[in-house]
Design a protein around this nucleic acid. Structure first.
Length: 938
RNA sequence: GCUCGGAUGGUGGAAUUGGUAGACACGUUGGACUUAAAAUCCAAUGACCAUUGCGGUCGUGCGGGUUCAAGUCCCGCUCCGAGUACCA
């Protein structure tokens, strides 16, 4: 009987769907396992063979856990708000919801065809109002909380108001914006409600503030720091500029310390943890205030080297600082203004590319050194970033290379504060060694001590204090876009008010065009019905806005990461209308046991999710502090692009081996027109694009035309995309699943090469044949042979180990070895073949189900207990010892494992071959490791 | 620059705690079956030398070291990939 994979796979996919085979149960006494794939964005391009790699791995583990008796939650859904659908809407006028729906349907078809054991009854979509109701709800909770550093958790804003009423804000130990004015209880009480609201906004965990943002004109929106790559937008690679705008932000910086500390407890790859550590960027030191001569203004700097404070010879401020305007002297004003203008016009990218050029301008003002009272010139320079620390540095040219370069360039003094070190050529920036000199009370101390001593002195003088600074910035949360969650916010006198949670969801309104309005407002500015009536609590038409009961609603929408920051909890109870998820479900499922996805989300999604999880934990909404206990990052599957060489300025192509004789341009060719021997199908190529219809070809001697190949990222534009549907059609989903695993270690990037797939496909056919005799399914009930049992148990042991270690490529080899051995043994025994079917079920579920059914079972194989390895079947009595001479293996010798060291040595020394190797020499030493090896030295 | 990975046949990749390097698969070559092809099956396949057979030398990016024994451990490099980048 033929292995008819198409028929078998369709049959079981239908059965699984009809019988809800993979539905998870939230009320279970069973132990739980939660396996999750990173949330897919349903792009218009559909899936290519790289996407399912991680899904296959998590599916194998999920199926394995079901066999092991776990109640498994293995859901899937869509991160369905986002830029591409909206860009497409702008071009075509098609509603993004329509595009999204179409894309999701295609994704679903493709996913279904690969035979995943997803519980589709739990599907979520972030663009669905039932879902974003709770995204909006979380936003409200964030708004209604602040971060208290004393209790080290989020606290209700009402508690903060109490504190303000009782004692003002002098002793409040809370996360807030820079430079919040201080007030006492009486002052607070005297403030207007508007003023109070403004102050509270400086403390709320999500807040509206004028901030410097990454503005991307091409996309018409701001971007978060992690969405900017090398000064360009991650999507589309458009230039990004700095701009001040009033935006919603998330006070993730309040959680910096916890986000950093808790990394240690996570079973994630070291590289992702390290990326997060760097992104959070904790540094310890001191903040120090410098008075400005003839001004009331104070310059506060952050430094990790307060011990070098006597080496300060100038100050540098970021040009963007407001302070610059205030202190610049009239003589320098023109130069300073010109410099500020020039640097604001540079994009982030230009500024970064310009690292080597040193630029700056003197402001004319002087700071006063707090210890020596010396006057220190204040400069501005764009090597100082407004966004880090206070945007000002105390420049110590002898101890910092950038300060040194700046000083050298502008001929500023370089006072040396290091004993016995030459600082005429470069700064001495060693942070572990060195002794301070020329520094009054710090002279002669080692770095660690002197830092402490310097901070004590600074604190005693009340000019600063010990301070820990984080690189992590608050995350901009507004997007000037249509296709995202609306904020549940309306404005009264320009101040934000929140719509109460009971009136959620606030549903995205319809608009005529997905573009900003003429006066530059976000697309929601086009909505006709986008006002909030506070007496009826409804969205009403804009013409009813009276600023008494009816007010305008926020026009920005939330960013892509809003919905994806908490979706892992919604799967636990996806249809709950009253809560984000029930306490029972949250307590039972806890968090994700295994998370599989790419490492590109290291500083975005994976950090934001951790932040929201900690917040939800703080407000007692969920029982865990971390969303993902263990994570595996699958490597990218790369494409193998094909190039045909076209002779410059002609329509003539030349085969690869002769290309060097001409001046050519390589042209990407669709890989579907190229065979495994790299020969191009010229006829298809001519039909492919009209410009090639009349192309001429210089071929090899045999008339074939060879292309060049190169490994690149798989992408539509490179014509190297391999579609999993095609593989399923030709070889079947089971083959695809096993082949993707067989390619190599899951975490490693690798090129897709279809050539090897036949090996895996043949293996499945051999497996099928084991259970058949010609046309007939045939498995006998006789006891299996000793060898067959040994093969089986060896396989059980290795496969179990491999799954636990995520080493799926080696399990596929193990199965191949098992089937080869069983075929050789002519094993046809149910005692072996039945457990074998279960073993392979997580990898190749369709063929396993079919064989299981033929073996006489009515239930799905999916919960059949996983075979348990038993030692007794593979106990060896004899070991084939490698016999080495001076470390080189010369021959092998079969010896009983019972033998003692001395007996082994005796047998080896008596062997003819030993005598021959020694050729009469007497060995100096004989090393015998029982069960392992014998090595004769001499 | 810094951080984290990686480098093993023609190819993808195996190799327990340091203990037979190259499992498994692709590809290639030869053979069987066939009128032929495909499919299938069998055999060989790291390089070099030797060959009737037995065998030998070299070999895991490079150079050292530790050890009876190193792909694996240590020291110093080279190259490739990823992340990050004026972070005070």
């Amino acid at each position: 009987m033929q292995y008819n994979f198409n028929e078998i796979e369709a049959k079981w996919q239908k059965r699984w769907a009809a019988e809800n085979t993979f539905q998870a149960n939230s009320n279970s006494a069973q132990k739980k396992f939660y396996g999750l794939d990173m949330f897919p964005y349903p792009s218009g391009a559909g899936l290519h063979v790289g996407h399912p790699l991680g899904y296959i791995a998590s599916d194998i583990v999920s199926r394995y856990k079901r066999h092991k008796g776990f109640n498994v939650l293995h859901p899937q859904g869509y991160d369905s708000f986002g830029l591409p659908a909206e860009q497409y809407a702008i071009q075509t006028g098609q509603h993004p919801a329509t595009t999204t729906k179409t894309n999701i349907e295609r994704y679903r078809q493709q996913l279904d065809r690969i035979g995943f054991s997803f519980d589709w009854s739990r599907e979520v979509r972030t663009s669905n109002p039932d879902y974003y109701n709770w995204t909006q709800w979380i936003f409200i909770q964030l708004f209604n909380h602040y971060y208290c550093y004393t209790s080290n958790k989020a606290q209700p804003i009402a508690k903060l108001i109490d504190l303000f009423e009782n004692e003002g804000n002098k002793h409040v130990n809370a996360a807030s914006d820079e430079g919040v004015e201080s007030f006492n209880s009486a002052e607070w009480k005297s403030f207007s409600s508007e003023k109070k609201e403004e102050i509270l906004l400086h403390y709320r965990l999500t807040y509206l503030a004028e901030t410097e943002v990454n503005w991307c004109p091409a996309l018409g929106t701001v971007l978060a720091n992690d969405e900017v790559v090398n000064g360009r937008s991650e999507r589309g690679s458009h230039p990004v500029y700095k701009k001040k705008m009033k935006q919603w932000s998330m006070r993730i910086s309040a959680y910096a310390e916890r986000l950093l500390e808790d990394l240690d407890g996570l079973d994630w790859s070291e590289s992702i943890k390290e990326a997060q550590r760097n992104w959070i960027g904790k540094s310890e030191g001191a903040s120090v205030k410098f008075n400005v001569k003839d001004h009331d203004e104070v310059i506060e700097v952050f430094t990790t080297r307060p011990d070098t404070i006597f080496g300060v010879s100038f100050m540098t401020l970021a040009p963007e600082l407001d302070l610059v305007q205030k202190i610049t002297t009239s003589a320098q004003k023109e130069a300073v203004d010109a410099y500020i203008k020039a640097s604001s016009l540079k994009s982030e990218r230009d500024r970064m590319a310009d690292v080597k050029t040193i630029s700056g301008v003197f402001t004319g003002a002087y700071a006063i050194h707090p210890f020596t009272q010396q006057l220190i010139p204040i400069w501005i320079g764009d090597y100082v970033l407004a966004g880090y620390g206070t945007g000002a540095v105390m420049a110590v040219p002898s101890g910092d290379q950038r300060d040194f370069d700046f000083a050298t360039h502008f001929n500023l003094p370089i006072p040396n504060v290091f004993e016995g070190v030459d600082v005429s050529k470069e700064a001495y920036s060693d942070k572990d060694n060195g002794v301070i000199t020329n520094s009054d009370f710090l002279n002669g101390l080692k770095i660690k001590e002197e830092i402490d001593k310097a901070i004590s002195a600074i604190e005693a003088k009340q000019i600063g204090k010990r301070h820990t600074n984080f690189r992590l910035r608050d995350a901009v949360f507004s997007r000037q876009r249509y296709w995202g969650e609306p904020f549940p916010v309306y404005y009264v006198n320009g101040l934000p008010r929140l719509i109460e949670a009971q009136y959620l969801p606030l549903v995205l309104p319809e608009i005529d065009e997905y573009l900003p309005t003429e006066d530059g407002a976000p697309p929601l500015g086009r909505a006709k019905k986008w006002a909030w009536n506070t007496s009826t609590n409804q969205v009403v038409s804009n013409d009813q806005i009276d600023e008494v009961t009816t007010f305008p609603i926020e026009l920005n929408t939330m960013p892509g990461w809003a919905g994806s920051s908490w979706y892992m909890f919604r799967y636990m109870d996806p249809h709950n209308q009253d809560q984000m998820a029930s306490q029972d479900a949250l307590n039972y499922w806890q968090n994700v046991d295994l998370y599989i996805g790419g490492s590109e989300h290291a500083t975005g999604h994976l950090l934001y999710s951790r932040f929201w999880t900690k917040f939800l934990y703080d407000i007692n909404e969920i029982p865990v502090e971390e969303p993902f206990k263990k994570m595996i990052n699958q490597g990218m599957i790369l494409g193998e692009s094909a190039f045909a060489y076209r002779i410059k300025e002609t329509n003539k192509f030349v085969t690869q081996s002769k290309a060097k004789d001409f001046e050519t341009d390589p042209i990407h060719v669709d890989v579907s027109m190229v065979n495994v021997s790299h020969q191009l199908d010229i006829q298809s190529f001519k039909k492919w694009r009209s410009e090639f219809a009349t192309a001429e070809f210089i071929t090899e001697k045999d008339g074939s035309f060879l292309v060049a190949r190169e490994v690149e990222k798989m992408s539509k534009s490179k014509y190297n995309v391999i579609n999993p549907d095609d593989i399923c059609e030709t070889y079947g989903a089971d083959t695809l699943r096993m082949y993707e695993m067989f390619l190599g270690p899951i975490e490693q990037a690798k090129p897709w090469n279809t050539a090897g797939i036949t090996g895996v496909h043949n293996f499945l056919r051999k497996l099928w044949k084991l259970y058949h005799n010609g046309e007939q399914f045939e498995v006998n009930n006789a006891a299996a042979s000793k060898e067959a049992m040994k093969t089986l148990h060896k396989t059980i042991r290795k496969v179990t180990e491999d799954i636990e270690n995520f080493s799926f490529n080696t399990s596929v080899s193990t199965f191949m070895i098992a089937v080869n051995e069983l075929a050789k043994q002519k094993c046809n025994s149910k005692e072996v073949l039945e457990p074998l079917a279960i073993l392979i079920a997580p990898f190749a579920p369709h063929i396993a189900e079919e064989l299981w059914e033929k073996l006489g079972h009515n239930d799905s194989i999916s919960t059949a207990p996983f075979p348990v390895y038993e030692d007794k079947y593979i106990v060896e009595e004899v070991k084939t010892y490698p016999i080495s001479f001076n470390g080189k293996m010369r021959f092998t010798l079969d010896l009983s494992l019972d033998l003692a060291k001395e007996e082994i040595e005796k047998s080896v020394m008596n062997d003819e071959r030993t005598k021959k190797q020694l050729a009469g020499r007497t060995p100096k030493k004989v090393i015998v490791v029982p069960g392992k090896i014998v090595n004769i030295v001499g």
